[in-house]
Write a protein that binds this DNA or RNA. Sequence first.
DNA 1: CAGTGGTCTAGACCACGCA
DNA 2: GCGTGGTCTAGACCACTGA
Lengths: 238, 238
Amino acid sequence: MPKYKEVAEKIRERIKSKEYAVDERIPDQHSLAEEFGTSRVTIKRALDLLTTAGLVYTIQGSGTYVKRNALLQAQSSIQIGHNVGLTTAIQDEVELESKVIRFDVRFPDETEQQQLMINKETPIYHYQRLRILGGRPYSLENTVVPVNTIPGITEEVLKDSVYRYIREELSIVFGDNRQIVRAAKPTATDKKYLDCKDDDPVLEVEKIMFLKSGVPFEYSTVHHRFDMVEMSFINQDN
Amino acid sequence: MPKYKEVAEKIRERIKSKEYAVDERIPDQHSLAEEFGTSRVTIKRALDLLTTAGLVYTIQGSGTYVKRNALLQAQSSIQIGHNVGLTTAIQDEVELESKVIRFDVRFPDETEQQQLMINKETPIYHYQRLRILGGRPYSLENTVVPVNTIPGITEEVLKDSVYRYIREELSIVFGDNRQIVRAAKPTATDKKYLDCKDDDPVLEVEKIMFLKSGVPFEYSTVHHRFDMVEMSFINQDN
DNA sequence: CAGTGGTCTAGACCACGCA
DNA sequence: GCGTGGTCTAGACCACTGA
């Protein structure tokens, strides 16, 4: 592990253990450099990490301070970016199941061509899965994936985890993803599989996943039961 | 403007103008340093910016490459973090109006105390606003704000923009915010003001806004008409 | 093994806050 | 004007990729 990450980790510990108190100024970069036996640049990089992680903020000419809400974020190791999450109501030791409703290969329609940046002759997998948590259905996925990019998908893979297959079997590295979230009325399919009543809304999430190289490899629209799923995220407004 | 940002900006232009083509390798850091008359460290910082912006990716030992989907992000100037947005269906030249439904001062309940990190004797403003776009109501806000942190809110301010007031009149600097998004059934108030039918869902957004110092200054729950608002965001999964 | 990116240093200068 | 953070350099070493 590089030195700047080590230093950042140590400072994070100090904040967590309240050695550096909330709302207070921490020692200046020169002192820290001396203490940790590094150059000041390295200290600066460490503090930049902690700034992005939301633990501290700096005022030029004044100092570096611990944020009032730092302890909320100080729990886990430093890893920025991981800031969008799906939360399901039930969490503990409940069995996650996937039921494959549909599994085809076909050519993409216009929207799919655009979103996946492929032409109309590039074959895609198309599958629909019902996700079940502790016996209760909670979301219905509709997904298309280019065969060229992610080859070898089988019904077996769909019952397990597609992402695990891509990561572990194909050793492909993920990149960003873009999502759009809406509230929507349930479709006929939703009512059938998610057991929605007529006036039960669904949380609709449209998503494109990219590889590290920027190649889109999955385009999906998921309907979640409104009473079992919410989405949370942190927005860094720099 | 610092040199590393200038360099990043120039490289961004080259990608946008296709001088550096998508999926191709760009010149190595040593050459770029020479060309721009900077040290290699400065080039590295510039490339880091572009990486975070989603324009390029690096493979150690191999080079720096333009991402396949780079042109999507290359439009505007470099500014990361601004990655969560509210999109309203109608955009062009439509008048935005705010109708104040309620405006009080009171003490906070338990949830509000927790979210705003204040005690039960800290007074808060509490207001409810209906937002109207081109004559059509589209969202209903319910907001609480500590009087100490943001003093001087008036009905006049509410009719204009609270954020503009905070930024410009009080010259206070914003920081992060956290949001939770859900689909929900309309409440009686929603039906009345947003003109929702019984089976029209709403998009519920619960939000806490923080100052740069990490002090929370606003806690709100907003209900949006499902057919006028959606939320989009980019997730950097590093 | 040559080329490329990732990290680190010591020292310098500048911009800003604050007394 | 002093102390603080922000930027920059020149040069070094290491880790990794790919021929």
